[in-house]
Each structure stands twice: as C-alpha cells, then as structure tokens.
C-alpha cells in the first residue's frame, strides 16, 4: 500500500498586476523564495522514492533482459526471458490462480467492509466498537496465517473438530486444491476487512447528513437511501479503496508462503510466490524479473482501468 502525495502548486497570487517589469520581477522573486522550502519538503521523499523505488525498478527491468544468478554478473539475453514466459505453463497458472484469489478476496472483502462501514456509520458512535474492527489488522500477517493454519488443520484443528461435532464432513482446507485458494482468500478478508471498512467509513462521513434527512422526509427507507445516496456519493472513495486493495491483493505472498507453499501441486502457486521461488530458490533472477515486469504492467493497467471506469477524480456531490 502506498499513498500518493501531490505537491500543492502555489496558485496565482490574489490581485495579480496585469503587467509591468516591477510586478514581474516581484513575482519571480516570490517563486524563487518558494522553491527552496518546497524542495526542502519534497526532497527527502523524492530521494527515498528515487533510491528505493525508481532505481531498483529500473534495475529490475534491466535484469529482465539478462540471465542473472546474483553471484555472477548478469549476461544480456535480449527478450529470451519474455519468450520463455509466454510458453511457461506455470506463469499462466500463476496468473490464473492469482486472479481467482483477487476475485474472491476483493469481492468478499468489499461487500463485507461496506456493510461494516455502514453499520459503524448508522448504528454506533462507540469508539471501542469501531476500534475493535481494526484488531485483526493489527496482528502480523504471518501470525494470522499460522493461527488459521493451526485452527484449520484437518486432524487436530478446532474448526474441523467443530464440523465433526456438527455431524459434517471434515474439510482439508489447505490440502484440497478446490479449497486452498478460497481458504487463503478468506483468511485475508478476515484480516483486512476492518481496515478497509475504516477507509470507507471515512468516506461516509463526507456525505452531508442533511441528504439523509431530506430523503427520509420524502419517505425513503434505509435500503433505498443506501442505494440512491450512499453508494453514488461514495464512488470516489470506493474507487480509491479498490485501487489500493486490488493492487495489494495481487501481491499475495506471505499467507501462501506460511501455509501451502504453492501446493497442493500448483493450486496456490500465486505470481509473487512463483517469482520468489524462481529468484531465491532457483537463482533465476533474470526470469523472475521478467515476470515481475509483466506483473507490474498488469497491475498498472488494472489500476488505470479502475480509475477511468469509476471516474475516481470527480464527485457527484455538489
């Protein structure tokens, strides 16, 4: 997850004179004196961005055209990695599995957090209740994954014990290829939905209450108000939340690494895990970089499409 900071540009000074050398010079002086503090504020972030994001990303793109095993210098191989990639069944499998994960994860998470956010907004003002929703998010990913891994164990897990007690069949949550991805997706829904709900809740607070009052005077119920007022006015916030959560969701790694390690067979070998295996287990950093570049392009197009389709830049309010 990342936040974008748009440096605010100084607007035209009020009462700007039409022309004149003195006025122009004065404006020039103003700009110069603004420039230094501006650079001072933007500088640290820019340096970090260049050193930790742009430069590694460019290196990654370069490595994707090489055969590189880290310990010996890379050798240029042109587009060979990309040609291999198209024919690699495991790459296609990885993108398919990841897409399945994202659909389940984002679908369930968005609906549930929207519900939670509305409940928070309309039903309670208690900070304790609102804060409690955040709790799962405060637990480290790996700890969440391990805890669920234990609870969902086929033979000794409490969930299967419960299913047994209810007279239902036990389920091999992580071992059955039909169940593995939905299980991992739902674990992460559980962890992230409170956090996502909080983001949406912040959006809900921007909707003026008088709209609801007017609607209820006109005889609109809670359900109708939700679909005709809340959802349309929430659109820009929802778009932002979706861009962030979808991008994060595509990058699923830790839960897989801790529980299934890509198995059974290839059922949970998601893109990031496959990249990790290629790079850090098989030392094929060139090929792993090529897949990372493809993933980057996919994510960029998905985010772009979301922003365009959901018209994230404009609000229906006003």
């Amino acid at each position: 997850m990342s936040t974008t900071v748009t440096p605010s540009r100084p607007g035209p000074a009020p009462g700007l004179p039409r022309a004149g050398r003195t006025a122009q010079r004065r404006r020039g002086q103003r700009s110069r004196s603004d420039l230094l503090p501006a650079l001072l504020f933007v500088g640290p972030a820019t340096i970090g961005f260049l050193v930790f994001y742009v430069w590694p990303a460019l290196r990654g793109v370069y490595y994707s055209f090489t055969d590189f095993s880290v310990l010996s210098p890379p050798t240029w191989v042109g587009t060979e990695n990309y040609q291999d990639l198209i024919q690699d069944e495991l790459v296609w499998n990885a993108f398919g599995v990841t897409a399945q994960y994202v659909l389940i994860n984002i679908g369930a998470q968005t609906v549930l957090s929207l519900g939670l956010a509305v409940l928070m907004h309309r039903l309670t003002t208690s900070m304790a209740v609102r804060g409690a929703l955040l709790l799962p998010f405060l637990v480290a990913n790996v700890v969440v994954a391990l805890t669920w891994f234990w609870m969902l164990d086929y033979q000794i897990g409490i969930v299967n014990g419960g299913l047994d007690w209810l007279g239902m069949d036990r389920i091999a949550f992580f071992g059955d290829s039909q169940w593995a991805i939905p299980t991992i997706a739902m674990i992460n829904v559980w962890r992230h939905m409170g956090y996502t709900a909080l983001l949406i809740f912040a959006g809900l607070q921007t909707i003026p209450t008088h709209l609801y009052e007017a609607a209820s005077l006109d005889g609109s119920g809670e359900v109708r108000s939700f679909f005709t007022i809340t959802l349309p006015l929430l659109r820009p916030v929802l778009a932002m939340v979706l861009v962030i959560t979808v991008t994060g969701s595509f990058q699923i790694f830790d839960t897989v690494a801790v529980t299934t390690a890509g198995g059974p067979v290839n059922a949970t070998r998601v893109v990031y895990y496959y990249i990790y295996e290629l790079a850090f287990v098989r030392f094929d950093f060139g090929y792993a970089s090529a897949i990372s570049v493809v993933l980057f392009l996919v994510l960029a197009s998905v985010a772009f499409a979301q922003i365009k389709l959901l018209r994230a830049g404009e609000s229906d309010l006003s």
Binding site: F149, W150, L152, D153, Y154, I156, A172, F173, G175
Partner: peptide
C-alpha cells in the same frame, strides 16, 4: 492420510 489431509496439516 490422503495427500489432501497431509498437506492440510500443520
């Protein structure tokens, strides 16, 4: 145990 059960275990 089946492979499914085995890989679903801690």
């Amino acid at each position: 145990p089946s492979f499914e059960i085995a890989t679903s275990g801690v």
